[in-house]
């Protein structure tokens, strides 16, 4: 029983990282209807930026987090302006392929000697790990911080989208871009803001991931990114709380299937879930039936 509860803790800890990446994914999709595959690589850049902020600039955890969020927000906006905006009115597939192009570009540019170099880097222990034991269960402060950050980010994002003017403009843009423009909404600004927020969330995910699994490499974003994508679809792509729940669910499913079904099949199971959802309820757990996709 203790072991089962410990596995639940492991699953939630893993899931909170997926959730953090997933809410950024889902927000960009929700507003712009674009699956941004480069999202997981902005996550990677976020982790690297955090690394340099902590080691070279000697910043603490919170300043490094904000620094990395700012750098990635800027990067997100630049990528959108340079690579996606010129294609905004072309076919969806073109844009989708461009996001993959950006993904490969980011993975390979970070490997160059001028940036991080090809070697694996070790994320510094910016907050000393402390392990707590309660009745045979073990968890660390890092795991708690991860979960806390995911929940806070999710709540803040939900508040931003549903309660603020910017959020209303985002929703209007999502619903009908041309009509929103006619109502005086600056579409370019709203899309930039969306990418800035999405990328800042990815940066947060990157730093948290670096603290939990201190191995930085250019392809570190790929697998978590794919899982986060499944999580976003599971929760209903475009729906922020759905992504949170989806992320935690995928973390739990992955952990429990590793332990109780087969360690080798855990990834396969995560992706089978994606296929089942797409077949049975394409709008996801939280999706409305009449959602416009």
């Amino acid at each position: 029983m203790t072991e089962f509860l410990q596995q639940i803790i492991n699953g939630i800890s893993l899931g909170s990282v997926y959730a953090l990446i997933s809410i950024g994914y889902t927000m960009v999709y929700g507003i712009i209807k674009l699956i941004n595959f480069a999202h997981c690589d902005i996550f990677m850049v976020g982790a690297y930026t955090g690394y340099f902020a902590i080691t070279t600039l000697r910043l603490g955890f919170i300043p490094a987090l904000f620094f990395s969020m700012a750098v990635c927000a800027l990067l997100g906006v630049v990528i959108e302006r340079v690579a996606y905006k010129p294609l905004r009115n072309s076919a969806k597939e073109t844009l989708l392929i461009t996001t993959i192009g950006v993904e490969l570009f980011l993975q390979n540019i970070i490997k160059t000697k001028a940036l991080a170099g090809p070697n694996v880097l070790n994320f510094p222990e910016v907050i000393p790990t402390a392990t707590f034991k309660i009745g045979g269960l073990q968890f660390s402060n890092i795991q708690l911080i991860t979960l806390g950050i995911s929940v806070i980010m999710c709540a803040a994002l939900q508040f931003l989208i549903s309660k603020t003017n910017t959020g209303r403009a985002m929703r209007a843009t999502s619903y009908d871009r041309d009509a929103a423009a006619l109502m005086g909404i600056n579409i370019n600004r709203i899309i930039s803001v969306t990418f800035a927020i999405g990328s800042a969330l990815a940066a947060t995910g990157g730093i948290v991931f670096g603290m939990l699994y201190p191995k930085l490499e250019p392809i570190m974003g790929v697998m978590p990114g794919l899982k986060a994508f499944v999580a976003a679809v599971l929760g209903g792509i475009g729906i922020v709380p759905g992504a949170m729940v989806g992320g935690l669910s995928i973390g739990l499913i992955e952990t429990l299937s590793k332990v109780y079904i087969s360690s080798g099949l855990s990834d396969a199971i995560a992706f089978i879930i994606l296929i089942i959802i797409l077949l049975v309820k394409p709008t996801g757990l939280f999706g409305k039936r009449n959602v416009k996709v």
Binding site: N10, S13, L212, T255, V259, S263
Partner: peptide, 8 residues
């Protein structure tokens, strides 16, 4: 990156 399930 996460091996905690099996390590537990």
């Amino acid at each position: 990156s996460d091996f905690k399930a099996l390590l537990t």
